[in-house]
Nucleic acid binder design. Structure first.
Lengths: 163, 163
DNA sequence: CAGATACTGTACTGTTTTGGTCCTGTATAT
DNA sequence: ATATACAGGACCAAAACAGTACAGTATCTG
């Protein structure tokens, strides 16, 4: 199914919430406004901070804010920060520990074609594209076209409801 | 990590094996030549048949073969046949139920941009691209030996839960 | 027709992964 | 000094997955 896990899904919810205010927000605050339980939000925020997508301020009146301008944050980064490197199988070229015979295992290189293709396409989707009514409207209508194509694709795959 | 499950990985190994001869091969035969246990191979082949990537012939001297010319089979099809539709989250537009945060989760539909981007890129990767050589029918046993090595690699990573 | 071969469908089980929670520790503002 | 808020790690129940098993059906061979 190639799905991301729930934490990543929640992360987008929380990040979008943070995107609206862009002030320093505490985990408790974000939990309240997003509906995601505090311990879970907390876990997500910690990981996003570690990935340098967010930055944190400790102590009273502390909280989380973006470490960079949100416009430059890609979904690749968000996903990878919560799920590790995008690697469709364990057998990838630069995974030192998985496959001792890496250089003798040509199959791995070919899954990498898939990995790269996915990474590439995810680089074109930015965090702000996930915002429902994007105030950060792009100059190019890339998002619009992607969504349009999506609709066609979904119609084509009808018949097997995903979970 | 956005990974496919092991069955899909095995499926590619088995399909590549089948690509070599393109004759009718029994599940037992494919199991022997790929090293993947028979019940597992069997399970995979059944699913690929259901997805009309392969076709089956019952009875003595029966087996599996491609239902279409392998050149036109995309990785999207292979992956979706084993893992269901490519849907990064359960929260897609035509999914009957949404997440628990329905009222507070207004961007569920926007994951579809990601889904579509991934689908699109996977459509450009064909099954035959997973073969070490782009010419997919050599009389040599090249593929067989490669698959054998791949299998060894898979066994070698046992107990080491790579990502 | 009988027997052997080989796919079909489903159900079961042990293991792994994930989701979610909790606790202890550290940093900072007032 | 105290309250606030993040950091890091440990833990457990629930879900998903990998792998197996078995009864059933179709088809070939002799």
């Amino acid at each position: 199914m190639l799905r991301v896990n729930k934490l990543t899904d929640y992360a987008v919810v929380v990040l979008c919430d943070l995107l609206r205010g862009q002030a320093l927000r505490s985990a408790a605050d974000l939990s309240a406004s997003s509906g995601v339980p505090l311990p879970t939000v907390s876990k997500i925020l910690k990981q996003l901070t570690k990935a340098e997508i967010l930055q944190s301020v400790r102590g009273a009146n502390g909280g989380y804010g973006f470490a960079r301008r949100p416009e430059v944050i890609s979904m690749t980064e968000v996903i990878e920060s919560l799920e590790g490197p995008i690697a469709v199988t364990g057998c990838v070229e630069d995974s030192g520990e998985c496959c001792a015979l890496t250089d003798q295992c040509p199959m791995s290189g070919h899954w990498n074609a898939v990995n790269t293709a996915i990474r590439q396409s995810l680089n074109d989707v930015r965090l702000i594209d996930m915002l429902p009514e994007s105030r950060f409207m792009e100059p190019t209508d890339l998002v619009g076209s992607i969504v349009a194509r999506h609709t066609l694709a979904l119609q084509a795959q009808e018949g097997e409801p995903n979970r």
